[in-house]
């Protein structure tokens, strides 16, 4: 019994180290003063963050990521939220089919989709344009929005909406005063997912973006490939800190909404 417990502990620690260590290992390198991405770190400096902020390729790529991420969040957020509302409506024919179709972009390999988009966008005149990249990112981001909003809508008791109608609220008022506020956490987390997806998207960007739409992720990809430098670690640092922040916000929002929904019946 004791040996089993010890074994469990050992396995747990090793597995957690395997999962987390890479993320932790990269962080200090963001502050290295050396040009090499290796330990031991000779000295600490902010030079690589300066590089991100000032070197043209990095600065442009960060700005591009923000532009494209915002566009994707708005487009995928709107389309996905509307679709999730439609999916919830009892009058929808073949809801299972729609649901499956909406999730498919998550499944299709990015390279396959990328080839298709490259061919198709040339015909459409969208190649090497912001609109094209935003559309491409939205395709892969929209399933996350649909899933997230659908889940939050599923948590709304229909009787609550009926109650509002019985108290005199028109369908639009019911939506504005009851459905929307209750679905808001799901819509927000869907939007965050959409932004994160766009931020991290490389493959489609490779296929449809021109040099002017080079995003941060795309820039990191080629810099790892061609001339790796601690700027990568600095960018990774920003990514990880951003992730932790978003995760913390998500947990807080969930706490609050759960407290709100939880019935206090004994």
């Amino acid at each position: 019994m004791r040996a089993a417990t010890l074994f469990k502990l050992l396995f747990g620690v090793l597995a957690v180290v395997f999962l987390i260590a890479p993320l932790v290992a990269i962080l200090p390198l963001a502050f290295t003063s050396s040009v090499f991405l290796t330990y031991p770190i000779p000295g600490y400096s902010m030079r690589w963050f300066n590089e991100l902020a000032n070197a043209n390729v990095w600065r442009m790529s960060i700005i591009n990521s923000l532009i494209i991420g915002t566009g994707t969040t708005l487009l995928a957020g709107t389309l996905g939220t509307l679709a999730a509302l439609g999916l919830r409506n009892a009058g929808l024919v073949l809801p299972g089919l729609f649901r499956t179709v909406f999730l498919l972009p998550m499944v299709v390999p990015a390279v396959v989709l990328g080839v298709g988009m490259q061919v198709f966008f040339v015909h459409l005149g969208l190649a090497n344009s912001y609109a094209g990249v935003i559309a491409a990112h939205s395709v892969v981001a929209v399933p996350f929005v649909v899933v997230s909003v659908t889940a939050s809508l599923a948590g709304i008791d229909r009787r609550v909406e009926r109650a509002a109608a019985s108290l005199g609220a028109s369908p639009f008022t019911v939506f504005r005063r009851v459905t929307l506020p209750l679905a808001l956490p799901g819509i927000l987390s869907g939007a965050v997912f959409a932004f994160a997806t766009s931020l991290d998207e490389v493959v489609l960007t490779l296929f449809v973006a021109g040099p002017n739409q080079r995003t941060l992720a795309r820039q990191m990809f080629s810099s790892i490939r061609e001339n790796i430098s601690p700027a990568i670690a600095a960018a990774a640092f920003l990514f990880i800190v951003g992730t932790l922040l978003i995760a913390a916000i998500a947990v807080l929002v969930r706490r609050r909404t759960e407290k709100m929904k939880q019935p206090a019946e004994a």
Binding site: P22, V202, M220, F221, A236, F239
Partner: peptide
């Protein structure tokens, strides 16, 4: 939740 690129860079 962490960027795939970050994880690959880390490795």
């Amino acid at each position: 939740w962490t960027s795939l690129l970050v994880r690959t860079a880390a490795w």
